[in-house]
Design a protein around this nucleic acid. Sequence first.
DNA 1: ACACTTATTCTGAGTGACTCATAATAAGCC
DNA 2: GGCTTATTATGAGTCACTCAGAATAAGTGT
Lengths: 158, 158
Amino acid sequence: MTEQNAPVSPWAAPLRSAGRRVTRQRLAVLAAVERSPHSTADDVVTAVRSELADITVQSVYVVLSDLTESGLLRRIEPPHSPARYETRVNDNHHHAVCTGCGRIEDVDCAVGHAPCLTPSWSPGSSRMTIQIADVVYQGLCTDCRETSPNLPELTETH
Amino acid sequence: MTEQNAPVSPWAAPLRSAGRRVTRQRLAVLAAVERSPHSTADDVVTAVRSELADITVQSVYVVLSDLTESGLLRRIEPPHSPARYETRVNDNHHHAVCTGCGRIEDVDCAVGHAPCLTPSWSPGSSRMTIQIADVVYQGLCTDCRETSPNLPELTETH
DNA sequence: ACACTTATTCTGAGTGACTCATAATAAGCC
DNA sequence: GGCTTATTATGAGTCACTCAGAATAAGTGT
């Protein structure tokens, strides 16, 4: 009875080394986001409630922002969408958002190194110390491309 | 008396060629955004009211999103900030947001061409037709760098 | 196993940033 | 000067969070 009869979640150790207590709520949120990357807070509430029926929306918000701050989750803010979360952190990936249906795909860095970290400033700007550069691609996914035939040309906005 | 006694706004022609009527509200909004790039909707309301005291917040929202749709304004959505607008459209520039004070600077493309428009997809992603790639840099501006001495290292997130 | 401290979660209210439906107004055209 | 229809104003409502304070439960020590 003293021994652990439930399997220890793979998230317990990461939580501990982030200096956070291991709670059922946090484990459930992490599992939900891992199962469905790019989930919104609302998605997470729905998913988690199948396991923890009474969890509140507010708690999910608190847990999500706390886990984001501790580096276990990454928060992305796609245009015209509530914030989304994923467990894939600490790698150089970005996101592509379909302007038709809103679906989000992961994108690795095309260049390998980081040219965008040494930006060329526009005239009149003071120079900032850049820490991160996030790229958000927008385009049409294969499904939406079929339904809407004639599209704007590819624009060089980078 | 029939001749134009007020100088024709430089924005009249662009509005017309975008198929939009030339109204005082639109001219005032465009002038305000041109004067203060990266303005929020609220900033615009304040600025415009010095000229058009009775304009409503809702109208400003409508005008801003309409002008964005017609390509006269560009809307940017910095993290943890309401949407911002600028008149500088159709050029390849991006933005750097100071994580300390929130100030926003313009950044030209560092690479000149557009490597990010040919992204390398992560496994499991379907290929989208990319139309635009927006880069958001985050870092510390010179002012904030002085006040907060020890900072996280530069991270390659691109 | 039990108490204790404090992080975490819950309860309930509140805010910021928009969005929508409908009525009034005013550009642009004849 | 009228007319048509795009714009703007009015007023209400929603979405995505955020905050204060009370209740609960991890983790720690005994």
